[in-house]
Design a protein around this nucleic acid. Sequence first.
DNA 1: TTGTACGCGTTATCAT
DNA 2: ATGATAACGCGTACAA
Lengths: 334, 334
Amino acid sequence: MATITDVAALAGVSTATVSRAFNGKSTVDPLLAERVFAAAGELDYRPNGLARNLRKQVTTVLALIVSDVENPFFTSVARGMEDTAQTAGYSVVLCNSDDSADKERRYLEVALQERMAGVVISPTGPVDGVRMLRERRVPVVAVDRPVPGDVGGTVDEVLVDSRSAAREATEHLIAQGYERIGCVTGPAGVATADERLDGYRDALTAAGRPAAPQHEWHADYRPAGARDTTRVLLDGPDRPDALLVANSAMAIGVLEAMNERGLRPGRDLGLIAFDDAPWTRAVDPPLSVVAQPAYDIGSEAARLLLTRIAAPDGPAASTLFEAHLVTRGSSQRG
Amino acid sequence: MATITDVAALAGVSTATVSRAFNGKSTVDPLLAERVFAAAGELDYRPNGLARNLRKQVTTVLALIVSDVENPFFTSVARGMEDTAQTAGYSVVLCNSDDSADKERRYLEVALQERMAGVVISPTGPVDGVRMLRERRVPVVAVDRPVPGDVGGTVDEVLVDSRSAAREATEHLIAQGYERIGCVTGPAGVATADERLDGYRDALTAAGRPAAPQHEWHADYRPAGARDTTRVLLDGPDRPDALLVANSAMAIGVLEAMNERGLRPGRDLGLIAFDDAPWTRAVDPPLSVVAQPAYDIGSEAARLLLTRIAAPDGPAASTLFEAHLVTRGSSQRG
DNA sequence: TTGTACGCGTTATCAT
DNA sequence: ATGATAACGCGTACAA
């Protein structure tokens, strides 16, 4: 593979000039530049990114570490981040931590070893990993959830006000006349799961309804877990007549269990789920959802990260997006 | 950030010894190794991947360039590839070409500049891009589709026998008593779209039914396009009573259009779609699908790539996976 | 077994 | 405006 030296030789200039030409420095004679590019073309030369990175002590690669690549919310985040990063000349490496603190830690180590320019993460593990990067002055932005254990909010975050959204959704179910409203949320301890449950409780409390622990369930944010949970809750006593479901993957499981029993969304069981996944329009009746601005979240995270790369110091920024309720057929009785 | 020199100094050895210790060479005195690791721990040293890569002239990063990150088929492929690559010590960079030849080309350039160890791609653009890598001895494996214009099959591929699967699915619709079976496939010219249409035709022909051009539609492999197409075909004359849909994203659009018209899958319109997306179990009745072994495809592609990295020469390998029909409620009248 | 010294390909500094 | 040259941090001949 041709190197800068080869090009310099063929063009009859120094490597410095070739470098300058390729980096668009204005201080290079147009005539020489011409010759450089001609030579480069002839040799089919591409600058060696590795050497450049070593020399400049910085890469233009960002990492996005998500807890579940198959979750449409995170793929949207990825697209948003990618598009913004792209325009600034950065590439994005997508990493899947699978909600395992171990895997997450490994990826953080990789980010450090490969001297990536920054990391966006939906954190699973404790704050240590993130702290490790920050000590090395590698910018980190948390998305979707704050970093567990990060007291004092020292790391940049892009979050969604799930609690208000959950409350709004629950209020809508109440307004629609549902009376025994339940909530299927994610694992206790996961911030989004807790918040969504809190918002649900807020609405019930405000409506003067008793808190009903037997109407609150935790599943693992995946279809199968929610399906099993729903089977139990549908077959048990005091069956709810409506459900707030904390993400779209679990909504799949809920619908599956309802199908098994011939239950129809809306009529037999009011339903609102978080995440406006494409398929939610495919079910009959269409699923009411809490739409999170996933793409914008990714895009904003990238922007924050790039800002932080440019100016490593300064106080942590926290951006809070609103989620909004999209009412469709599954949340009305008629 | 501490370098190998700092560690060597603190441990009272040469940088060579530190390097050997960190690379697990057996030729290093256990006592010295001990001292090296102690020093490294104290300094919180991490080898600089950039320098290592430059020195070794090779990275341990693989690229996966897909035509649509939001397509669950490709996210499964990504997971399969990632898991296999991981165990061999490689990382995977996920890139989204968005079915744009331009974007694809840019990512191929990045792969080249960053000296990535290999590329798995679902090709959109012409063979030139791929050829460019291969000339530079960067291994490439095509997944999902062959490389357009690659006469003679010079590049490694991992494909699925869509045609047979489409035929099988169509035969099932015929056996279920559907009489006016249509096909909504992807863009003409995209290999998978053409193959699935061919398989559909195979079945009709074999059943002694006339080819019916008015029952064949092309859409863009996305929900909205398929929805619009389906609106037209449902409202038009000679409306089909069953549909083979060439991917799950389009199935969403088809179902949406059906919902608008109060049509029920199976009873009013038999339905089989490619891709066993999680949500297909959430609709009522559940969607019959052609399940592709997406995870295995990714895993096999990684294996092929790693083999090729180890032995760059030798004839191109082509792996063909079977897809299998999963019959559920949407393909039976009852 | 260990150390010395060179080179990977590039960019930045300093002269010219 | 251009060229010579010294790093960047590591791995590996080669020598000891």
